[in-house]
């Protein structure tokens, strides 16, 4: 059940690179939240006007608190660093959208994140690790400090492979992925933050006949399906014969890669 809560801010502080981490007390959202779902945060006042959508980065073990890792890039996220101080309240709507599906028989999965897309993965990693699923995490970003969440991926026993644009070019993420998949075939793939990676992952998953999912982003006004503002063009069949506009906040943000990787693209 969708909730709007004035959640007490436990803390709000720099994380790594351009990222800040905010933790709020919101048991009615954190409790039922599924991996890959998101929240919509209001910054007090009328400018900025719209809420800002963010993946939930982590949920506390007692499922009373949730964290959002946000990259400071524009007016809204810049204001979030000062307007939502520890001890204050944060107006949050959630849990929103549809999250990741972990197939019942999955034993070995690959999570592939780039940039802010990485912030959507820890809740999935927590759920998979709790089920004893082996996880390879392939993470990339512009710079090393912006590889957010490395501690979590290690703590949950993932095999982590990183790539940053500032490294003298070593193998690309996709090369690693194909190599790994040959040695230990993955049962499912999850990708966030890069359409280029999504296409590569999709091609691999299709060849192997295993599911692949992607978390999408689109500009949003409401985040809860009312405004029809956040549409993307989605394939209605695997061949891409028929497409339709679908709201990312309602039908996603997680889609099967075949829905969003278009043959013509």
């Amino acid at each position: 059940m969708l909730q709007q809560v004035n959640a007490p801010v436990v803390w709000n502080r720099p994380l790594t690179g351009d990222y800040w981490l905010i933790e709020v007390e919101a048991p009615t959202i954190a409790g039922p939240l599924a991996p890959g779902q998101f929240v919509n945060i209001r910054i007090p006042g009328l400018t900025p006007y719209l809420r800002r959508p963010f993946s939930v980065y982590r949920v506390s073990p007692d499922r009373r608190r949730l964290q959002v890792a946000y990259k400071v890039i524009g007016d809204g996220t810049r204001l979030m660093t000062s307007a939502l101080p520890e001890g204050g309240v944060c107006d949050v709507i959630g849990p929103l959208g549809r999250g990741f599906k972990l197939p019942a028989q999955a034993k070995h999965i690959a999570v592939i994140g780039r940039g802010i897309g990485i912030a959507a993965l820890p809740t999935l990693v927590d759920a998979a690790a709790d089920r004893g699923i082996a996880i390879h995490a392939l993470l990339s970003a512009r710079t090393t400090p912006n590889l957010v969440g490395l501690d979590i991926f290690s703590e949950r026993g993932c095999t982590v492979i990183t790539h940053t644009d500032d490294e003298p070019s070593v193998a690309q993420v996709t090369d690693h992925l194909i190599g790994l998949d040959k040695r230990h075939p993955f049962d499912a793939f999850y990708v966030c933050g890069s359409n280029r990676l999504a296409r590569a992952v999709h091609a691999l998953a299709e060849r192997r006949g295993v599911p692949a999912e992607i978390a999408m982003e689109q500009h949003m006004a409401c985040g809860f399906g009312d405004c029809h503002g956040c549409v993307i063009d989605v394939n209605l069949d695997r061949e891409g014969k028929e497409t339709a506009f679908r709201e990312v906040c309602h039908y996603g943000p997680v889609f099967d890669t075949w829905e969003v990787v278009h043959a013509r693209a």
Binding site: T47, Y49, C227, G229, F245
Partner: peptide
């Protein structure tokens, strides 16, 4: 009716710029 292509919404100063097109 499918409505208009995305992006359909954009924030402006204290406002919303939108073109949903009544799907």
């Amino acid at each position: 009716w499918p409505g208009n292509p995305g992006p359909r919404v954009l924030e402006t100063t204290a406002g919303l710029h939108s073109s949903v097109g009544i799907p």
